[in-house]
Amino acid sequence: MRIPKPNPIWFFLSPALFLIIVFYVVPLFFSIYISFTPLQNWNLARYLDQISLENYERLFYMAMNDPDVTKVVKTTIVFVTITLIFNVLGGLILALSMFFMDESLSLPYRLIWILPRMTPIAVYSLIWYYFFLGDESGTLNSLLLRLGVIEKPLAWGNSPELLPESAWAIIILVNGLVGVSFGMVVFYSALRSLPREHVIAARVEGASAFQMTRYVLVPQLKWHIIYVTVWQLLSLITTYAHIFLLVQWGAIDKWWGSPWALYVFNTAFTTSDQGFAAAAAVILVVIGGILGILVLRLMGFKKLMQEPKGEL
């Protein structure tokens, strides 16, 4: 009698699968469950059997009527959209400029742009905290005062006459400078792996650097652009670490500087309303999922995922 051979797929998948189930799938379903309960103060024993849609109703009502939550919604849309464009386009421009650059120049250049990502979050945020500090000791204020552009120091992230644009500009800049290096690295390595004959041929055929970029290089980066866009979109929707510190230290307005992810975090961990926070988080995941799929559809992801050549 032959013992049936176990499928090797499970052998290879099991370590990753175990981690994913324990740390992603279980918490995910648990969060969804919590979002239907009025859980407060992590009192799991008391609230978990009261199932209702109340959190979602409240959330929807607040997003429409609560002025603070409305600010969060607007901030999220502006922050994600502009930072995403900044990251993808900026990464592409940086990668292209490095591609046309001499190797001896491009290495230090690359290093400078990766620095924000290498710097610990708290240190990096602190630099920006002091840069935008509201009194005359802030870097930006002291610079502009010295140059005579302004007469008295401005509270860049808080001053009512500058909000909301100034707070948005700060969080977009702080996150954008971290995120832009991701696209840069992906695009640059993709450009470097193109056959160099393509570049030589285009030059011989008379293409300027712009024409080469437009007609030869960027079209061949299509899949990389899709990948970076989706990846950055999903991570921007859920990012809050730098912004959390800047808000916490008072560098930016609490509401005009809070994207949805930070709002979820603050609701869950600084107030006692975990059921409500879970509902907010579920909404975020659903919107993230929909947007991700939408982008993949728009950009033709199906063509990327081809049938494997040969059998697995």
């Binding site: 004959e197 393509h198 041929a201 007609y215 030869v216 079209p219 061949q220």
Partner: peptide, 8 residues
Amino acid sequence: NYALYPHM
């Protein structure tokens, strides 16, 4: 290697 542009 011919160096034809694959997307054209």
